[in-house]
Computed example of a mutant assay.
Amino acid sequence: MLATLPPPQLEHVCDLAVTISAPLEIGQTVAGLRRMIPITGGVVQGPLLNGKVLAGGADFQLILGGGTQAHLDARYVIELDDGTRVFVQNTALRVASLENSQRIMRGEPVNPSDIYFRCQPKLEAAGDTWGWLSESQFIGTGRRAPDGVFLSFYRVV
């Protein structure tokens, strides 16, 4: 018999403030407009994860929809307070009006309530202590600022 299952619950894992440097414009390709945003660092704070974002990652962007959709693929490493390193691959969708999208691309502030920014981070760490990161699904929400990206990650339980 077909029955609707109860919806999953969300458990707040952490908040991230990711610092970035100027975008590297790749240009218009057959797939769309490509950009790469270098990740220069950041902080991670929350009830389940605390540490810092290490420099050296990047956010690879594909801009579609006449400039109103950004398909994001960010890859970076978090170093937790205990020294454990966590690999993060975070895919996201950011949708905004053409005007707000152009503001974001120029590095100007926008009203976060006017932007749809959701993500699906995958987290991996070595060792038993943090094994649950690889055995869980995560979703999140984001906000782009001129000098960085702010994210909140939630574990789907």
Rank of each mutant, 00 (worst) to 15 (best):
P7W: 11
V77N: 06
S134Q: 14
M105F: 04
D128G: 11
E124I: 12
A74K: 08
P8L: 09
Q61F: 05
I20N: 01
D128E: 14
N90R: 07
R106P: 00
G127S: 09
G56S: 05
R106V: 00
D147A: 13
L33E: 10
D128M: 07
L80N: 10
L133F: 07
Q28Y: 10
R34N: 03
G65T: 05
Y154G: 01
I26K: 12
N90D: 14
C119P: 00
L49A: 06
N111L: 04
L62K: 12
F150A: 13
G83D: 02
G46C: 05
E99W: 04
P23H: 02
V53K: 03
D73M: 02
V88Y: 07
G140K: 09
Q69G: 03
C119L: 11
G32D: 03
T129L: 06
G140A: 11
R118E: 04
R144S: 03
G65V: 03
A92M: 08
G42A: 10
H71P: 00
V30C: 08
C14S: 14
D147T: 14
R75Y: 00
E124C: 04
I63Y: 11
S134Y: 10
V13I: 15
A55C: 01
R94Q: 12
S134L: 09
L151H: 04
S21Q: 10
I20L: 09
T19Y: 10
S152P: 03
E108T: 07
G140T: 05
E11K: 12
R143M: 13
Q61H: 04
R94W: 06
A125Q: 07
